[in-house]
Computed example of a mutant assay.
Amino acid sequence: MAHTTANEGSYRSLTDRHLHNRSTSAQTKVGMTRMDPVWEHGGMTQPEHREVLHRDGSLRGRGQMLDDEMHGYWEWFRLDGTIMRSGSFARGRQIGTWTTYDRAGAPHKETQYGD
C-alpha cells in the first residue's frame, strides 16, 4: 500500500449541490460512527447524517455534517457501489489517515492529512 502526505484538502466542492439529509436511522449502518454533540456559543450543536448521491441516484458518499461542514468519518463510493475512499473531517478539513481503495475494495493507498 502506498503512503502519501497531503496538506489541507476538502471535498466541499464535490458535495455542495449533492447533499441530501436522509433518515438519521442510517447512522447505525456499517462504517458510521456516532458523533458527540459539540458545544458552541453557549449552545449544543448536533452532527447530522448526510448522504451525497451520484446523478443516477446511487450513493456517492455518506458521513456527518456539523453546521453545513463535513465533520467526522466519511466514506465515498464508485458508481458500481464499491468503496473508493474513506477518512475523517474536522469542520470541513480533511484530517488523519485517508484510505483509497482499489476497484475490488482492497486498501490501495493511505494519505496522511494534518490534524
Score class of each variant (00 low, 15 high):
M1H: 12
A2L: 12
H3V: 14
T4Y: 11
A6Y: 04
A6R: 15
A6S: 15
N7E: 08
E8I: 10
E8S: 08
S10M: 04
Y11H: 11
Y11E: 06
R12P: 00
L14N: 11
L14K: 08
T15K: 00
R17F: 09
H18F: 09
L19D: 07
L19V: 15
L19G: 00
L19H: 02
H20K: 15
S23I: 04
T24C: 04
S25C: 10
A26S: 12
A26Q: 12
Q27Y: 09
T28A: 13
T28F: 13
K29M: 09
K29C: 11
V30N: 14
V30W: 13
G31Q: 08
M32G: 06
M32H: 15
D36A: 14
P37Q: 11
P37F: 03
E40V: 02
E40T: 06
H41K: 11
G42I: 01
G43L: 11
G43H: 12
G43M: 03
T45D: 06
T45W: 02
T45V: 15
Q46V: 08
P47F: 03
P47A: 05
P47M: 07
E48G: 04
E48T: 13
R50A: 04
E51T: 01
E51H: 02
L53D: 02
H54K: 01
R55T: 13
R55Y: 13
D56V: 00
G57N: 07
G57C: 13
L59H: 00
R60E: 06
R60T: 00
G61S: 14
G61K: 02
R62D: 09
R62A: 01
G63W: 00
G63M: 01
G63Y: 03
Q64A: 12
M65N: 03
L66R: 03
D67F: 02
D67C: 10
D68I: 10
D68M: 15
D68Q: 15
E69V: 09
M70C: 13
M70R: 07
G72Q: 01
E75Y: 01
W76V: 00
W76D: 09
F77G: 03
R78Y: 06
R78C: 00
R78E: 11
L79S: 09
L79T: 04
D80K: 08
G81Q: 03
T82Q: 10
M84L: 13
R85V: 05
S86C: 08
S86P: 01
G87Q: 02
F89M: 01
R93H: 15
I95N: 00
I95G: 00
G96P: 04
T97C: 12
T97G: 02
T99A: 03
T99H: 00
T99I: 15
T100L: 10
Y101E: 05
Y101D: 06
D102E: 12
A104L: 12
A104E: 14
G105V: 07
G105K: 05
A106D: 10
P107W: 08
E110M: 06
Q112A: 06
Q112M: 09
Y113A: 11
Y113Q: 07
Y113K: 02
Y113W: 14
D115N: 12
D115Q: 14
